[in-house]
Each structure stands twice: as C-alpha cells, then as structure tokens.
C-alpha cells in the first residue's frame, strides 16, 4: 500500500507539489495522469524514496520510506529516462541488482529471457531505447517488488512488447498482490490495466476515482430536435459541458445512465445518442473544469 499525506515539494523556490493526498491499495494498479509539468515525475520520485518531501508524509505499508533500506528493498522504480552503468552487460547489471534486492529471483530472471529475447551478455548502452526499456522491465520484474513505480513505462515499446509487459504486470498483481503506480499522459495505454485513476494538475490531485465508476458516471449525449429545443431540457441535470453543433446539441452529463436516458426521452428528441466517455474525454473535460481547456487557436 502506498499512502501520501499532505505532501509538499519544491525545487529552489518553485512549489511543485502543493499538498498531495492519495492512497494506492495493495494489489491495485493506480494510473496517475496529469498535464505536462503537473508534477507527476516529482511525485513518483518522492513516492519511491529518491527525493524527500518538504512537508507531509509518504508511507509504504504504514512506514516512512526515505532512506529506509528494508522498505526500499521491496520498491522498484523505473524512471522515464533510464540509467544503466556504462559498459555493463545485462548479466553484470543483474548481478548488481541481486546484491541490492534481497528478493531477487534468479530463476525468474532466466525465465524472462524467453519473453524479452535479448542477448544477456551484451552491453546495455549499446541497445536501442526500446530495448533498454525492456531490460529495465526485465530487471524490475526479477527483483520481485511489492511496490512497482513506473514513470511513462510504455514509451518506446512496440505494441507486441507493450502487451507482453502489461501481461507480466497483471500476472504479478494477480499472483502476489503487487501494488503498481503508473504515470502516463498516454491515456489509452493505461486504460485497460488501471483500476484507479488520479488526475494531477498544477501540483494537486483534482480527481481520484475508480476507473469503472468514472466511466459509468459521465456520459456524452447527442440530441437533436426538429422543433425548437425545449427550454427546460437541462433542468435537474448535472451538465458539465454543452455545445451546439448546427442543429445537434452535444453535452456531457454526469449521472446515472438510465436516469439521463429517461430524462431526455420525455422530450421526445428526433435524434438521441448516448455514449460513455473515453478516459481521454474525461481527462479533457475535467481539465477544462480546472481551467486547462483546449483552446482552438487558429494559426
């Protein structure tokens, strides 16, 4: 379990994280989304004990983590810019990991070679970006972490490898309740494996929810009337966004599926279409609410 309480962090005099609170339950996969420069990487680095927070607390299974070797032993962090020792082969790096992580599983490491199909005696820095990322996953999964923290993990991996990597993560979550914290702004990448989503914006979490609830809670409705639009159409509805596209009304409504449907049906629209939102759309509208709207600027 990861628990972050009122955490603040600043670099020099720039406040990056302004009181972040969130919890990732054991065995859960938490997707941390956020605008560019929202503080995602800083948050992840603090959670994995690389940086120390200025205020507040970070707990891993109820104990603080910073400089606590026995806790950090079960935490693995894959940063967005990977670092390997220069001139080291995979085998040598694995040896290094083995000395650091007490739960290192050598047989698993050798078995995973079948998944990654990379020559174990080659120097890592000679590999391409995508292959280095594979090596990072390979090493991380062999260290049997209880907590896995991933910063933009699938960047630079091809679709087959993405699927393989996701599959490995999911298996570890199912088998030994590994806790995973993933940051990404590529929402489609994380949509299928996360169960909880948090949106970080300007240093605070502005939304945190179970992904399925989030998806079934907000709907996109398209209605059109031959006659004039009834004036009381939006009464008693929680409308997040409204737009007229010609004669078609497009709106984003929060609420129960059947309630919304029956509400609109009473006005007998000529065209009625209701869809759940994709994570991408949820992100855009929620961010719009937070003053981070898409501005269609013509250039």
């Amino acid at each position: 379990m990861i628990k972050v309480v009122n955490m603040e962090k600043s670099y020099e005099n720039q406040l990056v994280l302004k009181g972040v609170n969130f919890t990732v339950q054991k065995g859960s996969i938490y997707g941390l989304l956020g605008s560019n420069g929202a503080g995602k990487t800083t948050l992840l680095k603090t959670v994995s004990g690389i940086l120390t927070q200025d205020k507040g607390h970070v707990f891993i299974d109820d104990s603080p983590l910073f400089e606590q070797v026995q806790i950090k032993d079960r935490v693995v962090f894959i940063p967005d810019t990977l670092y390997f020792f220069p001139q080291y082969t995979i085998r040598q790096t694995a040896q290094f990991y083995k000395n650091i992580y007490s739960c290192w599983d050598e047989s698993r490491f050798l078995k995973l070679n079948e998944v990654f199909e990379i020559d174990i005696d080659k120097k890592i820095h000679k590999f391409s970006k995508g292959m280095q990322r594979q090596v990072a996953f390979w090493l991380a999964m062999s260290a049997m972490p209880k907590i896995l923290v991933l910063d933009e993990p699938l960047d630079g991996l091809d679709p087959v490898m993405r699927k393989k990597v996701k599959n490995l993560i999911v298996q570890d979550v199912a088998e030994r309740e590994m806790t995973v914290l993933i940051s990404s702004h590529n929402l489609r990448e994380v949509e299928d494996i996360c169960d909880h989503i948090g949106i970080l914006h300007k240093g605070t979490i502005i939304l945190e929810k179970e992904l399925d609830d989030l998806k079934s809670d907000v709907h996109k409705v398209q209605v059109a009337f031959k006659k004039d639009v009834p004036s009381n159409l939006f009464e008693d509805l929680n409308v997040l966004y409204k737009e007229e596209r010609g004669s078609v009304l497009l709106c984003i409504v929060r609420g129960n599926n059947t309630d919304i449907m029956s509400h609109f049906k009473t006005f007998e629209p000529d065209i009625f279409d209701m869809l759940p939102l994709t994570l991408e759309e949820i992100f855009i509208y929620e961010m719009g609410d937070a003053g981070y709207a898409i501005k269609n600027i013509l250039v």
Partner: peptide, 18 residues
C-alpha cells in the same frame, strides 16, 4: 480463475474480481 483470466485478457485482476 481471476488469475487465468487476467493473464489471458491482459486486464486488471481487480476488475475481474469486481
């Protein structure tokens, strides 16, 4: 089992549990 299905479909085991 949740495990098999999670592995087959590459989706979150918690979702299957739910």
């Amino acid at each position: 089992s949740v495990r098999t299905l999670a592995q087959q479909l590459t989706i979150n085991p918690n979702t299957i549990q739910k």
